[in-house]
């Protein structure tokens, strides 16, 4: 009976995860106040056919910062990552352009690393919300 119970629970979990979690985008949010050290965060994209990253900026930065999303386990061909985008200095409201940005489509179900770096000495605070679908 133990095997049956394990089988059933596992199968039910698979059904639930298969039907629900694969649909919604994966989201994460970072708040950066200290730009002297790079911010790195791992995220796994949703199990979609074609993924796209959207992100929103909110806050003020005194110098440009760079947002980069790359593969956690890159091959020789894709070591440069999915995109690298320079964010000009200024204030961002967190909604539409220029606060909202999006990537091209890319492959599915990838383990990614998000990096935010400031090439110059930067003050301010930036909240970035990433949605990976």
């Amino acid at each position: 009976m133990k095997n049956v119970a394990v089988f059933t629970i596992t199968a039910l979990l698979l059904v639930v995860s298969g039907c629900i979690s694969s649909i919604d985008p994966v989201e994460t949010e970072v708040l950066i106040a200290d730009f002297s050290v790079p911010m790195r965060k791992e995220i796994t994209s949703a199990d979609h056919r074609n993924n796209m990253i959207t992100y929103w900026l909110q806050g003020t930065i005194s110098e440009p910062v760079t947002v980069r999303v790359r593969y956690k386990n890159p091959t020789a061909g894709n070591a440069a990552g999915i995109f690298t985008e320079e964010i000009p200095k200024g204030t961002y409201a967190g909604n539409d352009l220029p606060s909202k940005r999006q990537s091209d489509y890319y492959g599915r179900n990838e383990e990614l690393i998000i990096e935010v770096t400031a090439p110059k000495s930067t003050v301010g605070q930036l909240r970035i919300r990433f949605s990976v679908q």
């Binding site: 091959t75 020789a76 061909g77 894709n78 440069a80 995109f83 091209d104 599915r108």
Partner: peptide
């Protein structure tokens, strides 16, 4: 095209990087 661009036969699988 996602599948093609990730195959080594086209640009060494590098097409998903931007620019």
């Amino acid at each position: 095209i996602e599948s093609i661009i990730e195959s080594p036969s086209f640009f060494g699988g590098s097409g998903n990087n931007d620019n």
